[in-house]
């Protein structure tokens, strides 16, 4: 554990080789297959493409079923941006009040937050409720569902961070005559930036990759999200593996970009429970 020891080169080489075989080969396989033509892709082997036809594959995937993939990407983007924005603002408000004010509501709120994190949602009754309020099969309905299911994680993340903001700050703002809304949105919310970024990143990845909720709450061809389209492509392109893997590649690109730019913040958010428990 001391830093002065020399690196263990043998162990390093073994670790790198194993990591390449276990973790990089599957991604290389996706990439290679998406470059192949239909016949070679059907061989399913790990080989260099004979004819590079990535552009053809890309066009075929995009044009399939009347540009459904484009619609799906637009839908997924709307879903992710809207639900994560609402989720983060509402969760920050709850976490703020929960952390700052101790009242008889606190135990109840804590239990609800915890149950939101642990309990699996009741699927068919949720559909029933959505039908009653006229939001079933609609994008706003799905957005609200994602908000409801994602709140708990964000509240816990925000609450831990708010505990580190000194109360003197609130008091100064209150003495200056700031209303609760002004205090929160003008003074406190900007201070939450680091943790808000973490929450936004983690939840964006979750919502963008979500398959179950769109499957239940937003069925129908034209409503498709990216993950649903990918799943349906599998049955459609069962014999065209080059197209299937081009689609998988496209779906992998947004998280890859997130990962390249925000690796540190994502890791911070996902491991936030590790030290305190």
């Amino acid at each position: 554990m001391t830093t002065l020891r020399r690196p263990n080169y043998l162990l390093s080489v073994v670790a790198i080789l194993v990591s390449v075989v276990v973790f990089l080969v599957p991604f290389a396989f996706i990439l290679l297959t998406s470059f192949k033509d239909r016949t070679q892709a059907a061989e399913l082997d790990f080989s260099w493409p004979r004819n590079f036809q990535f552009v053809d594959n890309l066009m075929a995937v995009i044009e399939a079923r009347d540009y459904l993939l484009i619609i799906a990407f637009i839908n997924s983007t709307i879903l992710t941006v809207a639900s994560v924005t609402i989720m983060v603002v509402l969760a920050a408000m709850v976490a703020w009040t929960l952390q700052r004010r101790s009242s008889r509501w606190n135990p109840l709120v804590n239990i609800l937050v915890l149950s939101g994190l642990i309990m699996p949602p009741a699927v068919v009754p949720t559909i029933w409720v959505l039908q009653r309020i006229g939001l079933f099969r609609t994008m706003p309905g799905l957005i609200m569902v994602e908000v409801a299911f994602g709140l708990s994680f964000c509240i816990l993340l925000f609450r831990a961070f708010i505990a580190t903001i000194p109360r003197e700050l609130d008091e100064a703002a209150i003495i200056d005559g700031a209303s609760p809304l002004r205090l929160f949105f003008r003074v406190i919310f900007p201070l939450l930036r680091p943790v808000a970024i973490t929450a936004i990143l983690v939840q964006s990845v979750n919502v963008f990759n979500d398959f179950v909720n769109p499957l239940y709450f937003l069925p129908g061809e034209q409503n498709a999200t990216v993950q649903l389209t990918l799943y349906n492509f599998y049955s459609q392109f069962n014999t065209q593996y080059n197209l299937l893997f081009t689609d998988i590649l496209l779906v992998t690109i947004p998280p890859l970009i997130m990962f390249l730019f925000f690796n540190r913040q994502i890791v911070a958010g996902m491991t936030s429970g590790a030290v305190k428990g």
Binding site: L90, V94, R101, M119, P125, L130, A148, F184
Partner: peptide
């Protein structure tokens, strides 16, 4: 300065789309 109604928007969404379905289930 920390009004309870700050809970309200989240409580509505969470209540309608998580708690109510859970009880209805």
């Amino acid at each position: 300065p920390y009004p309870h109604w700050f809970y309200a928007p989240a409580a509505v969404v969470f209540g309608v789309l998580f708690l109510v379905p859970t009880v209805l289930a």
